[in-house]
Nucleic acid binder design. Structure first.
Length: 481
DNA sequence: TGCCGCTTCAA
DNA sequence: TGAAGCGGC
């Protein structure tokens, strides 16, 4: 092991809000001392950078950052906050702090990778050492490809090819460092973009699409409600990890049941914000005792669905805006504004859909099976473009990420590479009977009065036929061009 | 990781 | 009359 020198490294935290299993932080500590920064990034003129956070994620990140600041402080590492364009802020901070190196965990969305590449070049031109480290994924997207193809388009071959590989060991929390001089922090704060956590404005407003509710409930109400259901940051993540065994046990049969219980592990926001690493979860799942092969395998499979989504997102720029199958550009969507509002506010008259949309609004999270049902309802029964649903989920889910969210919507809408055939239209009444036969989930989220007062906004059989007609119309457009 | 309508066949 | 099996969408 290398002896620690007096080097100073700036570690740029992004979607990796943890101090364990953090390759960039570990490497930086091995080189000497560390100062950390998190930037609320706005996209530059070229549209580079991460997709602006939705409302629910802004709340989560605000809370999680305040915990991360504490955790880093226990290690003697100051965490700086800044808002603006990272292409300007990171080099300026590196200069003012006079660091020797800059390190970060890789991100994989094309617009973010381009920005990171640009920043890396700029820093190297100034003579700094720069390293990006893996950590957000088990499989680097450029390392897996089928024979004669550039990337996998179907999950099962991807899963067979990449699962079972060695992912290495979980890294421990680095050892504490001596306090850095206050003069150093002062020089960073001379940078105009540097602020404190509240100064980032993450809690201002409720997000782009949530005006639907804002008028009735006021802008703070939403965050206050969501916050009753989650504890972002270290303690919450550790508790979620302790529940992992219960989450895996019985998973292969129970994961389709939306009613509250131990049927799902609710780890998605932890992964989204990097409070837990996929490697750590994989290791924990592999070593959990008293678990059947079926349960273990189907749980780990879900981890790899996330990998597959990022694999697709890496290879498809603008996956949140354009269909992977281009013929869906000609799909005759209806896009009725009132229908969208009814869906968003859980007033479609179909209890499973309305319960799901209510759970989303109240908690920032929705059970996966219900996500599929509500998404099918919007894109097929209401004939809305999947992008509108994707944007609503982006704004309201605490686990919305740039890959899973658009890829899953495209999967349901039929425009994805490995998508469900379009004619698979979920029937929300039938799904309700199959997966919530005792109304446990419905009763959890819908009051009897709302349930009874709302009459269905569309007929299931008629709207299903209309969707199949629209699909035929798209195909005939395709055939004639 | 469907749904529907049709057919068959046993009560 | 309805469960069960299928093929088409």
């Amino acid at each position: 092991m290398e002896a620690a020198s007096e080097g100073l490294t700036l570690v740029w935290f992004r979607e990796d809000l943890r101090v364990h299993d953090h390759a960039a932080l570990t490497a930086a500590r091995a080189d000497g001392h560390v100062i950390a920064v998190w930037v609320r990034e706005s996209r530059d003129d070229d549209g580079l950078g991460p997709r602006p956070l939705g409302g629910a994620c802004r709340w989560w990140v605000h809370e999680s950052l305040s915990v991360l600041e504490e955790e880093l402080s226990h290690l003697g590492i100051p965490l700086l906050f800044a808002a603006g364009e990272s292409a300007t802020i990171i080099p300026e901070l590196a200069g003012r702090l006079d660091v020797d190196a800059v390190r970060w965990s890789r991100r994989y969305a094309p617009a973010s990778r381009s920005l990171d590449g640009r920043i890396k070049t700029e820093l190297r031109n100034r003579g700094l050492t720069v390293h990006s480290h893996p950590g957000a994924l088990l499989v680097e997207p450029w390392t897996a490809a089928p024979q004669g193809g550039d990337h996998y388009k179907v999950f099962t071959p991807f899963w067979k090819a990449v699962s079972g590989g060695d992912v290495g060991d979980v890294l421990p929390v680095p050892v504490e460092q001596p306090r850095l001089s206050t003069g150093l922090i002062d020089s960073a704060q001379a940078c105009a973009a540097v602020t404190d956590l509240d100064g980032l404005g993450l809690l201002d407003g409720t997000g782009t699409g949530s005006g639907v509710f804002a008028a009735a409930d006021g802008p703070r109400w939403w965050q206050d409600t969501i916050s009753r259901h989650w504890t972002p940051g270290l303690r919450g993540a550790a508790a979620a990890l302790e529940d992992l065994h219960a989450g895996i046990d019985g998973y292969s049969t129970a994961h389709d049941i939306p009613a509250d219980g131990a049927s799902t592990s609710r780890l998605s926001p932890r992964l989204r914000h990097g409070e837990l690493s996929p490697r750590q979860l994989l290791r924990a799942a592999q070593t959990a005792e008293g678990i059947t092969v079926d349960d273990r395998t189907s749980w780990i499979r879900q981890l790899y669905w996330r990998e597959f989504s990022w694999h697709l997102a890496y290879h498809h720029p603008d996956i949140d805006a354009w269909p992977i199958r281009p013929e869906f550009n000609d799909f005759p969507y209806d896009d009725d504004e009132g229908a969208l509002r009814s869906w968003q506010s859980g007033q479609t008259g179909y209890p499973l859909v309305d319960a799901g949309m209510t759970q989303l609004w109240e908690t920032g999270w929705m059970h996966n099976r219900v996500r599929m049902v509500t998404a099918s309802f919007l894109t097929k029964n209401l004939l809305h473009h999947w992008r509108h649903g994707e944007q609503w989920f982006w704004d309201t889910l605490v686990d919305a990420d740039e890959a899973n969210n658009p890829v899953s919507w495209q999967w349901v809408a039929g425009s994805g590479a490995d998508a469900a055939p379009f004619f698979r239209v979920f029937n929300p009444e039938r799904q309700r009977k199959r997966f919530d036969p005792d109304d446990a989930y419905i009763d959890e989220w819908l009051s009897e009065t709302t349930d009874a007062e709302t009459s269905p906004i569309v007929d299931l059989a008629d709207s299903r036929h209309a969707a199949l007609d629209a699909y035929d119309q798209m195909k005939s457009t395709e055939a004639s061009t």
